[in-house]
């Protein structure tokens, strides 16, 4: 598994306030890191699994994709501009989102923080 991606589950679940903010989130989404895709499954704000996508039918409500170097920069303690936030990555054309965006938008700060969870303070 891509380094940092393997930390999402543990880092999110260790943050009670983040789990609380996501308490109405129960779904799976796809996280694309370059050519590799991961299915991130969340139940009531807790990340229950982060697994490489093995089957074509394994999918999620929405997909968030960026190139591997973009995520590596994103996960640095102080990322360069355009790489520091999902929405800034969208604005710069570095990341792409697809699928049913409603649950993402309804819980946008939660999902931004889930993605950033592997970032070292």
């Amino acid at each position: 598994m891509t380094p940092r991606v393997d930390q999402i589950r543990e880092r999110v679940n260790a943050r009670d306030a983040l789990v609380r903010r996501g308490r109405y989130v129960s779904l799976a989404f796809l996280l694309g890191v370059g050519d590799q895709e991961y299915v991130v499954t969340i139940e009531h704000g807790r990340v229950t699994s982060v697994e490489p996508r093995r089957l074509a039918t394994s999918t999620g409500r929405f997909t968030i994709r960026a190139a591997k170097p973009a995520w590596e920069e994103f996960w640095k303690p102080v990322p360069r501009r355009d790489h520091h936030d999902l929405w800034s990555m969208l604005a710069a054309g570095i990341a792409k989102i697809d699928g049913d965006l409603l649950p993402l938008i309804q819980n946008l700060q939660y999902f931004k923080d889930v993605l950033a969870a592997p970032r070292d303070a």
Binding site: V78, P79, H84, D85, L86, W87, S88, L101, L102, I105, Q106, L108, Q109, K112
Partner: peptide, 23 residues
């Protein structure tokens, strides 16, 4: 997205602009 009954307008506005603040 900023004004519809199934999205909290205040929270989504803040979440949209949160990335506009430097780390």
């Amino acid at each position: 997205w900023l004004h519809r009954p199934d999205v909290h307008g205040g929270e989504v506005s803040a979440a949209f602009v949160s990335g506009q603040i430097a780390p």
